[in-house]
Design a binder for these strands. Structure first.
Length: 598
RNA sequence: GGUCCCGUAGCUCAGCUGGAUAGAGCAGCAGCCUUCUAAGCUGCGGGUCGCAGGUUCGAAUCCUGCCGGGAUCGCCA
């Protein structure tokens, strides 16, 4: 039982004892004491006045006396207005630290055989253009949330659904056929996804020219857009693809291969892996059977033209198309199908979809239709809806080239990290190959932290003019703290200090900064739990930042290795080592690796 | 127009299921390296928490209505 719960429990007993009343547990609020007040935990007494029928001060004192007499952990108490501040004995804090100091994965819940199984789908790119900053946010979120869920004791399967078919890829294919002159990524020395993306852009340009021409000829805009020869050709190509035309299939396979190899490189740079990759070309027909079954049962209805619809008016929504008149499926049909398939496959307890908030409506409808179809697991689907990444001039638009390309950004971060490192010169004595390990870690640390520290739900702004910071509330700041501790550890080892020399039986009086650190660390299990519940890496990022700030103060004002009292010195060293390991584990949940020097 | 999300310092963001005098970073100014890595630390200035009501002992937080911004309501994905 956590100490907070224990205090709450005794507070309830105290009310019973003092006032003879059974208090509502919801009225008991135990929280961390504010920084500007002395104390460790605070019991808010205002809600308890209804039981005591005394003044806040009197009630606080009575409860304080009660608690201190029953809980040996508590050293003293103080009543300020309606707040009962409890101060724990120093030995309680050091005892807590002594207990956890050797935990390999402090705060992380070990996996049990009956742990809930969570499927996390993320990334899900289209194979017609390279990844951009928006995809980076998606990938980082998906990966980080998966790690957080694992740390919180869940079984996690990370899946990707690559959208490798459809009109968009046909546009790139057609464009390459017309203007590519047989170029390949190898010949062009360009990443495959970039090359295909360029042809996609080319298609759009040529298509727009045709549309403009048609409009000039007096055709109205809508018709022109629908009748431009290029579009008709692309549609023709899609039909051929669906009819398994060998030439089209060959071209399709080749270009998809280019793109996927390009993606793999980007994923590698981002440190992202999947347990399973699905391809839409293999899943796009799923769901039709579900729809026809539901139609037979009268859950869905059919229009005269043969199209099939779900009526969601009883849920306050509209009608939703599930099968076109020609019997082909739409996105929703596929998603119904894949959800069903995955449930058959995994019997997941939860299925998280990391998808932008522009698809809120889609996922709402997806759940409702599954509910309508009678699948009891419909409420196990969860749409982790994240906000868009915007540029100063607004939303990114890939067709207009107003995007921040993922590979470019990664490159740029690398050069910045390298440049700063070289300027500071602290790695001058480090061999080249080790530096080449550290630069990307710092670069990616900056980028990943920058994105993950903001609440997923919120739209975030990225200004390419102001490059991502390496100072302040940043990834490198946290890495730097880690690196400093590692350096102290090396020095300790060099001077023969052994870490097992702490005598815990002797009273260790933690200083202000040490105690603050232990208090912060004590909060971690709760932070992790909340991060897993809310699917929010930002909570982990903020926690780590607070911890690091406090560690740096400690580092600044206290000396570790030069401390004369050996017990104290070793305690500080142990605390530092623990913080370093804890930081590395915490950053790992954000997908960030630690450099050993920087 | 309907539905959903957002609005906190010049800028970028924290602020958990309501709790004490709303916090960081960046930018600006002023200090700190003969001492464990200065990518650090300390201090200063900067706020009608979009506006107005309501609930409450107590509201940035919950409710309602406005204002501003975004998303969505396609036989696109």
């Amino acid at each position: 039982m956590s100490i907070e719960l224990k205090i709450a429990d005794f507070a309830l007993k105290g009310i019973q004892h003092l006032y003879g009343l059974q208090a509502d547990p919801d009225q008991i609020s135990v929280q961390k004491t504010r920084k500007d007040q002395s104390g460790d935990f605070t019991l808010v007494v205002f809600p308890l006045l209804r039981y005591s029928r005394r003044s806040p001060e009197e009630t606080g004192h009575s409860l304080g006396e009660y608690l201190i007499s029953r809980m040996p952990e508590i050293g003293k108490y103080e009543v300020v207005k309606g707040f009962l501040n409890l101060v724990m004995h120093d030995s309680w804090w050091t005892g807590f630290f002594a207990e956890i100091q050797h935990n390999e994965n402090y705060g992380h819940v070990t996996l049990t055989s009956d742990a809930p199984h969570i499927l996390v789908e993320f990334s899900s790119p289209n194979t017609n253009k390279p990844l951009h900053l928006g995809h980076i946010r998606n990938n980082l979120l998906g990966h980080s949330v998966s790690q957080i869920l694992k740390a919180a004791g869940h079984r996690v399967t990370m899946v990707n659904l690559v959208n490798d078919r459809g009109i968009h890829i046909c546009k790139s294919m057609l464009s390459w056929q017309k203007w590519g002159e047989g170029i390949t990524p190898e010949k062009a020395h360009v990443k495959g996804d970039r090359l295909v993306g360029d042809f996609y852009v080319r298609f759009d340009q040529e298509y727009k020219k045709q549309v403009t021409k048609l409009i000039e000829q007096g055709i109205d805009e809508e018709q022109a857009a629908a009748q431009a020869p290029l579009l008709l050709e692309a549609q023709q190509m899609l039909r051929k693809w669906e009819e398994h035309d060998p030439d089209v299939l060959r071209l399709w396979e080749m270009m998809n291969e280019w793109v996927c190899r390009g993606f793999e490189e980007t994923y590698r740079n981002l440190g992202i892996k999947f347990d399973k990759i699905y391809y839409e070309s293999q899943t796009y027909k799923l769901g039709k059977q579900l729809v026809s079954d539901a139609l037979e049962k009268g859950i869905l209805y059919q229009e005269e033209d043969g199209s099939v619809w779900a009526d969601l008016t009883d849920e306050g929504l509209d009608q939703k198309l599930l099968l076109r008149a020609d019997g082909t499926s739409v996105y929703m049909t596929q998603d119904l199908g894949t959800a069903h398939q995955r449930y058959q496959e995994y019997s997941f307890d939860r299925h998280v979809y990391v998808v932008g908030n522009e698809q809120n409506y889609h996922f709402k409808v997806l759940g409702l239709i599954l509910k309508k179809m009678g699948f009891p697991w419909y409420n196990r689907l969860y749409h982790l809806s994240y906000g868009m990444v915007e540029l100063p001039e607004g939303k990114m638009k890939s067709r207009e080239g107003k995007v921040v390309d993922a590979d470019d950004l990664i490159q740029e971060m690398y050069y910045t990290a390298k440049e700063i490192s070289e300027r500071l010169g602290k790695m001058d004595t480090v061999p080249e190959e080790k530096r080449q390990v550290n630069y990307p870690r710092i670069a990616m640390g900056a980028l990943k932290y920058y994105i993950l520290k903001v609440d997923p739900q919120k739209t975030m702004l990225f200004n390419p003019e102001e490059s991502i910071d390496f100072n302040g509330n940043t990834g490198p700041f946290i890495q730097y703290t880690y690196v400093r501790i590692r350096s102290v550890e090396r020095k300790a080892k060099d001077s023969g200090i052994r870490l097992d020399e702490i005598d815990w039986s002797r009273e260790i009086k933690p200083g202000e900064y040490e105690k603050q650190l232990i208090k912060r660390i004590h909060q971690y299990p709760g932070v992790l739990k909340e991060a897993a519940r809310a699917f929010s890496p930002a909570l982990i990022a903020n926690y780590l930042y607070e911890l690091v700030k406090e560690y740096n103060q400690f580092y600044q004002f206290e000396t570790i290795l030069k401390e004369q009292d050996k017990n104290k010195r070793n305690f500080r060293l142990r605390l530092s080592s623990f913080v370093a390991r804890h930081l590395a584990e915490g950053m790992n949940l954000l997908g960030i690796e630690m450099p050993e020097r920087m």
